[in-house]
Amino acid sequence: DTFTFTLDGIEVRLHGASEELIKTIEELLKRDIRWEELEKWIREWEK
């Protein structure tokens, strides 16, 4: 599955994202998160 969203005018596609990761990103997007914050968060998630 591919999860697609737009952040700061950039279309982002995550391939093979888990349901948990998708739900977490959706929550972060509701908080009007900035790209830099999401990028940092995703790097931490990957560890």
Rank of each mutant, 00 (worst) to 15 (best):
F5G: 01
G16K: 07
L14M: 09
E46M: 10
L14D: 00
E27Q: 11
W35A: 04
E27D: 12
L29W: 02
E44S: 03
I42Y: 08
I33Y: 06
E37W: 08
W45G: 02
F5I: 07
E44L: 03
E39H: 09
E46N: 11
L29G: 01
L14P: 00
T6E: 13
K30N: 12
I42W: 05
E19G: 08
G16E: 06
A17G: 04
R34A: 10
D32W: 04
D32S: 11
L7T: 02
D8E: 08
E26N: 13
E27Y: 10
F5V: 06
D32C: 11
K23C: 04
E36W: 08
A17T: 04
L38K: 00
L28V: 06
T2Y: 14
E20H: 11
T24M: 15
R31N: 13
G16C: 11
H15I: 15
R13H: 15
I25Q: 00
I42E: 00
G16S: 07
T4H: 11
L28T: 02
L38T: 00
E27K: 08
K40S: 11
S18G: 07
K23V: 06
E36M: 07
V12E: 01
K30V: 09
I10V: 14
G16N: 15
L7Y: 12
D32M: 05
I22G: 02
I33E: 03
T6W: 14
W35V: 04
L29T: 02
F3L: 04
T24D: 11
T4L: 08
K47Q: 15
L7E: 01
T24F: 12
I42K: 01
R34F: 06
E44P: 00
I10W: 05
W45H: 06
K30L: 14
H15Q: 12
E44W: 04
K40Y: 10
E46K: 03
L14W: 05
T2F: 11
L14H: 00
A17Y: 07
E46V: 11
L28K: 07
K23F: 10
E19M: 14
D1F: 14
W45E: 05
I10H: 15
L21Q: 09
L29I: 13
E19Y: 11
E44D: 13
L38W: 15
R13V: 15
D8F: 04
A17H: 03
R43K: 14
I22R: 09
W41M: 14
E27P: 01
R13Y: 11
F3D: 01
E44G: 02
L28H: 05
V12N: 01
R43Y: 08
E26R: 12
I22Y: 03
L7G: 00
E46Q: 08
T6S: 08
E36F: 11
V12W: 06
W35H: 04
T6D: 06
L29Q: 02
E26P: 01
K30A: 12
R43L: 10
L14G: 00
E20W: 09
K40R: 13
E46A: 05
L21C: 04
T2W: 12
R34S: 15
E44H: 05
I22K: 11
I10K: 10
G9A: 04
W41P: 00
E39Y: 09
K30C: 04
E26Y: 09
R31F: 11
L38C: 02
R13T: 15
L14T: 01
L7W: 09
E46P: 06
T4S: 12
S18D: 11
L14N: 00
D1Q: 15
E27A: 10
K40M: 12
L21H: 05
W41H: 12
V12I: 12
G16L: 07
R43Q: 14
A17L: 10
E44Q: 04
E37F: 08
R13D: 09
E11L: 07
E46T: 06
R34I: 09
E20L: 12
R34C: 08
D1N: 13
S18Q: 06
I10A: 05
E36D: 14
T6F: 13
L38V: 05
G9Q: 04
V12G: 02
E27L: 09
E27V: 10
